[in-house]
Design a protein around this nucleic acid. Structure first.
Lengths: 237, 237
DNA sequence: CGAGCAATTGAAATGGGTCAAGACGTGTGG
DNA sequence: CCACACGTCTTGACCCATTTCAATTGCTCG
């Protein structure tokens, strides 16, 4: 075992590829994995145009995936936390079309890609979980695409906050209910995910606050009226 | 074997999950698959809110994947042709968040989901191909997201046409070069994929035509100046 | 030949962007 | 412990890319 607790005690195991693995295969994973990675906020896990030669599982903290255009315009594709998998399968040797960056200090578990791919052939449950993980990310991207393509700014913001809230609650072990929750994003991040300007995100949030739907200050998010917010996100009112 | 040619003669096999399968497993697929599906243009393969209890491989024709909002706004997530895989893995019993519809008459190969999932555990190469297919779709969604979120209308149209052209050429067995190619889309489809109005797509295409970059009439597409178009798509000029 | 959908074009409206100035917070170094 | 510097957020005024509305033309197919 290479740094950190054993895979058998892994606190995020049932959210990862290793879910439902028998002990023989879990031992193989344990032998394969690299020392646990601890990285600070702002670290780049994958460079745009660089390689992606590991599978990374986020054990603690938040990361984001994004691409940029030559002139600096940025699109954030996804925010990920506990249990999320980072890593390309197609053209993994080729330049990555997107970057992955730590939004907070993080801890991650790394598997070298080539050997992991071989392991997946011996552990088909892992391969199938991998497919599920990829499918989940695909569908999540479709959801965001719907927002960015067809929703108004107000609807987009409402939808994203609901989505993040759900994601955060799901990543908590104890389902802690109505406290404000930590959201390590600036309004610029929200803007870059939603295809808006940070100025307009600010205006939109101000309005939602005035209507008593959300509270968001100093990276603390609280949804004050989930039903109303859901209505806003769906285009009613 | 259930309708159509044997899997061993399948003309799209090397673009699908069955790529690189040994004959034992390929026989299993052959026994599992349902009669070949032939569907007419406009057929709904998956309903929004309905189930997704099959894996479908497109053998001929085009389909699109999209979602709609209660008031009818539509976002198209992807256009797919020869070799593409349709099917959900996560919450496949739950209502599908998107629909899949045939853009042309199509022929597809269907595998029942539950039994296919069991087969994947016996044929890990298939499971890994499945993961790759899902990853490919995820990354393709990210590309579109970048367009819709951060590119201008002009850049979006240029980028999509390049992308479709590439996709079409790749799906051709013989790499036929500089003929105009069939593109079974209306401007409304393009608009709904790019988060624009069909009116504005029309204006944008007219301009690109005037500049001699593309030709697109009656569902025939020809890229007259790929280099210039690429420059437009990247935000230069 | 007519019906109906797709595409085009013009004119006017608008949601969200841009530019700019100021307030607020927070971590840092003196 | 204070003050300053820097990043983030807010707010106002103006602008413009895209939408909306509307009318016309052109295809295609029955």
């Amino acid at each position: 075992m290479a740094g950190g607790v054993s895979c058998f005690e892994c606190p995020v195991r049932d959210r990862t590829l290793c879910r439902a693995l028998d002990s023989k295969h879990l031992t193989e994973v344990e032998n394969l994995r690299l020392p646990e990675q601890a990285l600070t906020r702002g670290s780049i896990l994958v460079t745009e145009g660089g390689p992606s030669n590991q599978y990374l599982t986020i054990k603690r903290g938040w990361v984001m995936t994004y691409s940029t255009l030559p002139d600096g315009r940025r699109q954030i594709h996804s925010f990920d936390s506990r249990g999320a998998l980072i890593g390309r399968m197609v053209g993994a040797e080729d330049p990555s079309p997107y970057a992955v960056e730590a939004l907070t200090d993080i801890v991650a578990c790394a598997l070298p890609r080539q050997q992991a791919d071989k392991l997946f052939l011996r552990a088909p449950k892992m391969a199938l979980e991998l497919a599920r993980a990829m499918n989940r990310k695909q569908e999540h991207a479709y959801e965001l695409l719907m927002s960015v393509g067809r929703r108004t700014a107000r609807e987009r913001v409402a939808h994203l906050l609901l989505d993040l809230y759900r994601q955060i609650c799901a990543s908590l072990d104890a389902a802690r209910p109505d406290q404000p929750i930590a959201l390590p994003l600036t309004q610029q991040h929200i803007a870059d995910a939603l295809g808006l300007t940070s100025v307009h995100v600010s205006r939109t949030l101000t309005q939602l606050r005035k209507e008593g739907l959300v509270s968001l200050h100093h990276q603390r998010l609280d949804l004050l009226d989930v039903a109303a917010l859901t209505a806003v996100a769906s285009g009613d009112r």
